[in-house]
Simulated scan of single mutants.
Amino acid sequence: MSEVKEGPFEGHQWAEPSVDKLRVLMRHVMSNPYEAKVKGNRGRDDMVQKFTPEVVTEFVANQIEIIFDEQRRT
């Protein structure tokens, strides 16, 4: 982990990528294309279910509504 020194994420911790680990993983993908395809499809499905503009917009709108409701009660 390394600390971000500047920008909007200053002070946060980010993972440092490992080139050696990436090399191992990429070789595994090349040796196991069916497994990679299954994982890729699962990842895509997850992104579509959780992070499409419509899903994110609904989440943000709900959060704003909660904030407004809290403000009205005070």
Rank of each mutant, 00 (worst) to 15 (best):
F59H: 11
D69Q: 12
M26H: 01
E35F: 07
Q49V: 10
Y34T: 10
P53E: 00
K37C: 06
Q71M: 10
K21P: 13
N41S: 14
I66R: 12
E6N: 13
D20N: 05
I64V: 12
V24P: 02
F59Q: 14
R23H: 07
E35V: 03
V29T: 01
G7T: 02
V48F: 09
V60N: 04
D46I: 14
K5G: 09
W14K: 10
K21L: 08
M1V: 11
G40E: 05
Q71F: 14
R42M: 15
R27N: 10
I67G: 05
R73T: 03
W14T: 06
V56G: 03
V29W: 07
L25F: 01
T57H: 08
S2Y: 15
K50R: 14
E35Q: 07
V38R: 01
A61C: 13
H28D: 06
E58L: 11
P33T: 00
E3Y: 07
K50Q: 05
A36W: 00
R73D: 10
N62T: 11
F9D: 14
I64P: 05
E35C: 00
R44C: 13
G40N: 04
S18V: 00
V56W: 09
K39R: 12
V19F: 03
P53I: 00
G7E: 01
N32M: 02
K50F: 07
K21S: 00
R73I: 04
E10Q: 08
A15P: 06
F59R: 14
W14V: 08
K50G: 07
E70L: 04
V29K: 02
Q13I: 04
E6F: 13
E16K: 12
V38K: 05
Q13S: 05
V29E: 09
E3L: 09
M47P: 11
E70P: 01
M30T: 05
A61S: 14
D46E: 15
F68H: 15
E35W: 09
E6V: 08
V60Y: 01
R23I: 00
R23G: 01
V48R: 08
P53H: 00
G40Y: 05
M47F: 15
N41D: 14
K37G: 08
E54P: 02
E65F: 10
A61T: 11
M30V: 10
F59D: 10
F9R: 05
V60C: 02
I67T: 07
R72K: 09
V60S: 03
F51R: 12
T57Y: 09
S2G: 11
M30S: 08
K21A: 09
P33L: 00
Y34S: 07
R42A: 13
I64T: 07
I64Y: 06
Q49E: 10
G11S: 01
R23S: 08
K37M: 09
L22I: 11
F51M: 15
G11R: 01
D45A: 15
F59P: 06
F51I: 12
L22E: 03
R72M: 04
E3N: 08
S2N: 12
E6W: 09
F68S: 04
H12V: 04
V29H: 04
P53M: 03
P17D: 03
F51Q: 12
D20S: 05
L25I: 07
P53A: 01
L22T: 01
F9N: 15
F59Y: 13
E10D: 02
S18Y: 03
N41V: 15
T57E: 15
K5E: 09
E58K: 13
F9Q: 11
A15F: 10
